[in-house]
Design a protein around this nucleic acid. Structure first.
Length: 464
RNA sequence: GGUCCCUUCGUCUAUCGGUUAGGACACAUGGUUUUCAUCCAUGAAAGAGGGGUUCGAUUCCCCUAGGGACCGCCA
């Protein structure tokens, strides 16, 4: 048995979106599960559209998700020479031929097919014409001599047996008239050279597989296993596209989604293991298999992502969570001041219970982060004369407090409730507004204790 | 239009011929809570339709409908 090798082969013609990330994840997980290798191949043979920035974005995305590839990135454009050699070999062996049709000629055929509403398949014009009839002024393309008779069977690890009539596969171009190889040739040659054993990729490549298998056969190469996973659809049921709304990882990271949460979500999108919902990394690797992949496309569900993220935030160790929050604030919000770090760190125990995202934690931390209270105008009006009286009394009693702890604070609050003939809300709400600027937020004792005596008194003195 | 694929609660899914069709998210209601949340409890919610096969079909087969992917000298 050969060692399992999988690969992820994106083209840097656009930013990597969440669907691509899932494909990468499945490949990576599968290789890990089988103690094999996982490679990254950048398919940058489309010179016009390939962009360095996209390549960087792809690599960073995978890094953010913790998906690491073995060895260096494999750059497809560096292997073009190899692809051309193979195309020539195919030509010599009679598995391919030169086609002298002009671009206009092909265009015309397609147009006619469309008018007649019949499917366009290249008419194999040059398949059997001898080359000495070739027009001088046209540079030929090389086409693969596809099977015409019979059927082909793909034993797909996800889709099951898929059978297709050979004559629906046209004689596809493998080398353009500028001598550059096309996708099906390049991908096949690279997969063979990289000794890829399992090709796990999107459903949209299924038809290509029949072309690629014929190339493997013509060359006498081992054919890898294929697993075509269903695509992720947008909420209105269409394929995720690089062009329109497709979400990139940045879209998620900037609202404070944790990579492990997204990994868990993506794992469960189209794959399942019994009723299990939460998979840590170790379990993901141990339990992942191809059998658990469903055959129908699935839709992205933001509320589920948020919910899983909430789970991971609550489940996080506070030290680790703080590091992530710090990094997050630095990149997307504002850097946490050094003197605030300890306060934030110790407040995470209660802050994280109110948050679905890192952004939520940031928002709920603003009363600590900002030196000056920023008041919500709608809430500020709740500070009426009655409230001011209570705030004054609380401030007075608190300032005399020798031991600033929850027990003593509770005592003060309880006394105030009694003596002012009010309830907890009557005391708690004005205090919260004065201390944080808003009537929403963490528990009042958490707020008071996290700010500390000095700061609490300072903020209460701020009373208009 | 051709080829191929898919179809269980709104969403992600479990079930591998016999279940009151299960779970999770979302939703609704109630409880805990000074607030917003959390948390807990409860509830509503599904086998596209029609034929077979079978003692019995969500499960196997066929047809219909709906949805999707592909049909490039893009990858």
């Amino acid at each position: 048995m050969k060692k399992v090798a999988t690969r992820f082969a994106p083209s840097p013609t656009g930013p990597l979106h969440i669907g691509g990330v899932r494909t990468a994840l499945f490949n990576w997980l599968y290789s890990k599960n089988k103690s094999g290798n996982f490679y990254l191949r950048i398919e940058d043979t489309d010179k016009e559209r390939s962009k360095q920035e996209h390549k960087i974005q792809i690599i960073n995305s995978l890094k953010w998700m913790g998906i690491e590839h073995n060895g260096e990135e494999y750059i497809q454009s560096e292997m073009i020479g190899e692809h051309i050699t193979i195309a020539e070999r195919l030509l010599e062996n009679g598995n391919a031929y030169k086609c002298y049709c002009s671009a206009e000629e092909i265009e015309e055929q397609k147009k006619r097919a469309k008018q007649k509403k019949i499917p366009y398949v290249y008419n194999r014009k040059w398949r059997d014409i001898s080359e000495n009839q070739a027009p001088r002024d046209i540079k030929p393309v090389i086409r693969f001599k596809s099977k015409i008779e019979g059927t082909s069977l793909l034993k797909d690890l996800v889709q099951g047996n898929v059978e297709i009539e050979n004559n629906t596969i046209e004689d596809f171009v493998i080398l353009r008239n500028d001598k550059t190889p096309t996708y099906n040739l390049s991908a096949t040659v690279d997969d063979h050279n990289m000794e890829v054993t399992h090709i796990i990729r999107g459903d949209d490549h299924k038809i290509n597989t029949f072309k690629q298998i014929q190339i493997y056969e013509a060359l006498g190469w081992d054919i890898p296993q294929f697993a075509h996973i269903p695509l992720i659809h947008t909420i209105d049921g269409k394929k995720l596209s690089k062009r329109d709304n497709a979400s990139t990882l940045e879209d998620f990271s900037k609202i404070g989604i944790l990579p492990e949460a997204l990994r868990n979500y993506l794992l469960r999108l189209g794959w399942s293991y019994k009723d299990k919902e939460i998979f840590n990394l170790e379990e993901s690797i141990k339990l992942f298999n191809l059998e658990g992949i469903g055959k129908s496309p699935s839709k992205l569900d933001m509320s589920r992502i948020l919910s899983i993220n909430e789970y991971y935030i609550k489940d996080s160790d506070e030290k680790v969570l703080f590091k992530k929050l710090k990094e997050y604030c630095k990149i997307y919000k504002e850097k946490i001041k050094e003197e605030k770090e300890n306060t934030i760190k110790s407040s995470l125990t209660f802050l994280k219970n109110k948050a679905k995202t890192l952004e939520d934690i940031f928002n709920n931390s603003k009363y600590i982060l900002n030196d000056k209270v920023v008041f919500n105008e709608n809430d500020k009006v709740l500070i009426n004369d009655e409230a001011k009286k209570i705030i004054y009394l609380f401030k007075d009693k608190t300032s005399k407090l020798e031991v600033f702890n929850r027990e003593n604070l509770e005592q003060i609050l309880n006394e105030l409730i009694k003596s002012n003939n009010t309830n907890f809300k009557g005391v708690g709400q004005p205090l919260r507004i004065m201390l944080t600027g808003s009537k929403f937020g963490p528990g009042i004792y958490d707020i008071i204790l996290s700010l500390g005596k000095k700061e609490v008194i300072k903020r209460l003195e701020n009373i208009g």
